[in-house]
């Protein structure tokens, strides 16, 4: 595995108002550092909202528009086209949305933007639920996970966003997380050099919503990969799958037992989850021709 130098440009500064230790804040730091100052960000209602800190200050040295929940992709496209019309086509436009804002309410807008291959970078901060409103389920919440809207555990499985977006044949989709910062930075650098709709899905374990100690975000991020729950991979033009980090055959229990949202699981349920994860991992390997 190659290692990449992680430069600290200080585009994201101290002063965010998210939970101390939030994985999204750490991810944001490396996203903004890597994209640099010639950028504009789009932030819908989500835990990304408080990242800017209290008005009139900002923790970010790039302009941000706080847009409506369901229209991050179209908002980003509008900005990019206006820059194009102004002859400033080199400005990077970043959408920074949650899983609720992406898998659910914003999917329609994202689909349209992807179909038009609008020239934006779309980051989905996937913490597997509506955390900003107090941990309700989204269609990214995994099966059996407790949320306040699924008190008995969620009955349906997690939606596969990457495959949906791959079917749009966008030039670049990647999954990554802050457990693998070199991977994260590598993928953002790569996306930055490309054009068209680039989508990066980051698993961002949520201290409060998942229920684990604040100093465990990196561990949780790594366990998600090592157990095969969230493999890190890339899809180019909807066709070329590359797996960067995947399952190391570690039993799912190692991941589940550290989280309060899975505390109620029966043995059967754990087995069921294991089976789904294994199937998902095999399917991904097939797609990557391994």
């Amino acid at each position: 595995m190659k290692h990449y130098e992680i430069a600290e440009e200080r585009v994201f500064l101290p002063g965010h108002a998210a939970c101390p230790g939030c994985a999204m804040a750490l991810a944001l730091r490396y996203i903004l550092n890597t994209v640099g100052l010639n950028a504009v960000g789009v932030i819908p209602p989500s835990c990304m909202g408080p990242m800017m800190g209290a008005n009139p200050y900002s923790s970010m040295r790039i302009p941000i528009i706080h847009n409506s929940f369901e229209s991050s992709a179209s908002t980003a496209a509008g900005i990019k086209r206006a820059f194009k019309a102004r002859g400033k086509d080199d400005v990077h436009v970043l959408a920074l949305a949650g899983d609720g804002g992406t898998y659910d309410i914003g999917l329609q807008a994202l689909s349209s933007v992807a179909e038009h291959n609008e020239d934006i970078m779309y980051f989905c901060m996937d913490n597997e639920g509506y955390m900003n409103t107090g941990t309700q389920k989204s269609s990214s919440t995994p099966r059996h996970a407790y949320t306040t809207s699924t008190p008995g555990g969620k009955e349906s499985r997690k939606k596969n966003l990457v495959e949906i977006m791959a079917a749009h044949r966008v030039p670049y989709i990647a999954t990554t997380n802050i457990g693998y910062l070199d991977d994260l930075v590598y993928k953002i650098k790569k996306a930055k050099k490309m054009q068209g709709t680039r989508i990066v899905v980051l698993l961002t374990p949520c201290i409060d919503g998942w229920g684990f100690p604040g100093n465990d975000v990196a561990t949780m991020s790594r366990l998600a990969v090592q157990t095969g729950v969230f493999p890190l991979y890339e899809v180019e033009d909807g066709e070329k799958y590359t797996i960067n980090h995947g399952s190391q055959g570690m039993p799912i229990e190692n991941y589940l037992k550290r989280q309060r949202r899975y505390r109620h699981l029966s043995k059967d349920q754990i087995e069921e989850i294991q089976k789904e994860v294994d199937q998902g991992w095999q399917r991904l390997q097939k797609l990557a021709n391994l």
Binding site: S74, T75, A82, A85, R86, Q108, H116
Partner: peptide
């Protein structure tokens, strides 16, 4: 911009307008 809905059309109107055009 010919998006999938009026909702997205207006979202793009707002952000494009705020980008100074």
């Amino acid at each position: 911009i010919t998006p999938e809905s009026e909702h997205s059309a207006m979202a793009a109107c707002i952000s494009a307008s705020l980008t100074g055009v």
